[in-house]
């Protein structure tokens, strides 16, 4: 039994090695061995890839010699990646884009509800105004990008269901995110990319809350028999918590897809895992929403942005390797 577990440890290490090193080996191997010239048909490329995959499966991973060989290869490939990343940066193009999520949510979030699309949109944009612009610069044959997002957010949350507990929360501010992404499919595609990256984000905002409170032991109560609405809420107290010059910072791990759909037009999404939120300046009123972050509820938040970009190449020529 002990020997079984002792061997299982090697199998586990081997499996982890495959998971971690596999994609790296596949994508960042030296150019002369993997980068097949474009003249070779696609089906031939795929056949070669399938044959290579079968060969990798046949490897005896418990064999020390094989492992030593793989480690050496991995080291070489790691160095090649660093060599590429530290090579002189060659910016290729400038991509300007915007986030479609914010534009589409208001009109299409409830397409089958009782309201028309126009009504939904008008109500949504009356209470929520968000804009986000994105600037991307791909470098060194689409290997990595520098990304900067900037935007504005205004949220007005109103609850008027009950006069004694109604409230209005307003939050407005600006935000920016800055970071980078590494393309995992640089060798496979010219302009398209599947990337992972990180962002540092900061929002500067102010928020305000007006509300009516009700507490019978303290004389704030709702007189349901009064006909005049102003009297009904007369005995409730009116709370007001304005707070300005707040700052929020957080970090994001991102993964995304960029697809060239027509000439310089790109579509793509970014999946964000936001964490490390730190809000400075909060006193009595705790933030409900942050520009660029969304609702503040959990320590880790996952969100999704759908972008449309237009690419302005720095050099003219065929797409891709400029």
């Amino acid at each position: 039994m002990f020997r079984f577990f002792a061997r299982a440890r090697y199998w586990l290490v081997a499996l982890l090695g495959l998971v971690v090193a596999g994609p790296i080996l596949a994508q960042i191997a030296p150019k002369d061995t993997v980068n097949v010239p474009r003249k070779v048909p696609r089906r031939v490329e795929r056949a070669v890839e399938r044959r290579a995959a079968r060969a990798v499966k046949r490897l005896d991973l418990a064999d020390t010699a094989q492992w030593a060989k793989r480690d050496t290869l991995a080291e070489l490939d790691t160095f090649s990646v660093f060599r590429k990343l530290w090579a002189r940066p060659r910016p290729q193009a400038l991509r300007l884009g915007t986030d479609l999520t914010y534009w589409l949510q208001g009109a299409l979030a409830a397409p089958f509800g009782p309201n028309s699309l126009v009504t939904n949109a008008s109500r949504f944009y009356g209470n929520v105004q968000r804009f986000e612009g994105t600037l991307e610069v791909p470098f060194n044959d689409n290997l990595y990008f520098l990304v900067a997002d900037f935007g504005y957010g205004y949220v007005n949350r109103v609850n008027r269901l009950l006069p004694q507990t109604s409230f209005q929360y307003e939050n407005r501010g600006t935000f920016f995110r800055i970071g980078g992404e590494i393309n995992l499919l640089q060798k496979t595609f010219d302009d398209e990319s599947i990337s992972i990256g990180f962002r540092y984000a900061q929002a500067n905002f102010s928020h305000e809350l007006f509300y009516f409170g009700s507490s019978r032991p303290w004389g704030y109560f709702y007189n349901a028999l009064a006909e005049d609405d102003s009297i009904k809420i007369k005995d409730s107290f009116r709370g007001e918590f304005p707070t300005e010059q707040l700052t929020a910072r957080w970090f994001e791990l991102t993964t995304g897809l960029r697809v060239s759909v027509w000439r310089g037009l790109f579509l793509g999404y970014t999946l964000r895992v936001k964490t490390g939120l730190n809000i400075r300046g909060e006193d009595r009123l705790l933030a409900n929403e942050l520009p660029g972050y969304g609702a503040v509820r959990a320590n880790v938040k996952i969100s999704f942005n759908y972008h449309v970009y237009y690419q302005f190449p720095f050099k003219k020529g065929p797409p891709g390797r400029r």
């Binding site: 589409l104 299409l108 979030a109 897809l257 697809v259 999404y269 999704f304």
Partner: peptide, 25 residues
Amino acid sequence: MTVFGWAGWLSLAGLLAACEDCTFT
């Protein structure tokens, strides 16, 4: 259109189904 192109349009459709619920105690 490539597979990635279709994936892009499909994710846009998935985006429209997103909604928010109220679960807070």
